[in-house]
Design a protein around this nucleic acid. Structure first.
Lengths: 156, 156
DNA sequence: CAAAATATGATTTACTCATTTCACTTATGG
DNA sequence: CCATAAGTGAAATGAGTAAATCATATTTTG
């Protein structure tokens, strides 16, 4: 077991391929990256064990299940006490409509991406849920007119 | 073939499970959603065909491959002519470091999320690539101090 | 309410696939 | 430059899987 397995060229190709299709068999993968199935299998296991290769997930078309509204919402905290922060981040983790959350430099403390079925749905979330949270002082919402790009494929 | 297959309760459970683990066999999936493997298989095929169930992808740990820097960048366009917009959106689609792009209401035209290895790397992208694009008038960058939440799991 | 269409679950078949083993090659380090 | 360790590919296996079939149940619709 290596603590920091150096990522070589074949590892990178494996990461590239699996980021695009998680269902590839080791045999197919081996062909694409120019290696053998056995070696690929070992490399995949090592990458998983190192925590580099994460879960295989299935992506859904948000529009087709009526979650077409993306809102980006800046949040300012009432206090920066550790307890407030932890409480807020727990809240973020639990709310399924909050897809992403970034702790930000600059004027705002957090940037959230929220999915909603329509504007009314978002209004409910904003007024009753987000602004109702004790740690939240203010929020500023910006609606996405469309999602021009959404990628999970990191450039390895 | 149904054009708009009504999503029932079992379909929802299938979507929930596959969003978390794309590698589930139909047998395991059937157990979890309370159905038979054969029926699950047919439902999965139908959901795929309807475009609801998208690709299976493998997620990577960005930090572990030295892409720990997330920057959110607002962009204002020089013009809103169709040609400018198309050119810019093509550019966005091609650049691998631009992970997400939203066309926005409000003061800015687009919001981008960019991954970078460090600040210098981002500076290069901003100065040479993004601001060098003919359609781009201005940009305003905000660094994420940390990624508090990142989820691909839509609330079905 | 009856007829037609559609979805379901049990079962089977033929594969494909993950995983192991082993002999061999390549890299590492004293 | 030799010795030890680490990684590689080919082959074998046994298990698990996708997909098809069919009789039955359920839903839809005229």
């Amino acid at each position: 077991m290596k603590s920091n397995p150096a990522i070589d060229d074949i590892d990178k190709r494996i990461l590239k391929e699996l980021q695009v299709d998680a269902l590839l068999s080791h045999a197919e993968l081996a062909e694409r990256v120019g290696s053998s199935p056995a070696s690929c299998w070992r490399r995949v296991k090592a990458l998983e064990h190192a925590g580099i290769l994460g879960p295989a997930v299935r992506l859904l078309d948000a529009g087709k299940i009526d979650l077409g509204v993306n809102v980006l919402c800046n949040v300012r905290m009432r206090s920066h006490a550790r307890a407030s922060i932890e409480e807020f981040e727990d809240f973020v983790a639990r709310r399924a409509e909050i897809m992403d959350c970034y702790s930000m430099s600059g004027d705002w403390d957090y940037l959230l991406r929220i999915v909603a079925v329509d504007v009314a749905d978002y209004e409910h979330f904003l007024m009753r849920i987000l602004l109702g949270h004790p740690s939240v002082a203010t929020a500023s919402s910006h609606f996405a007119l469309s999602q021009t790009k959404y990628s999970t494929r990191l450039p390895v």
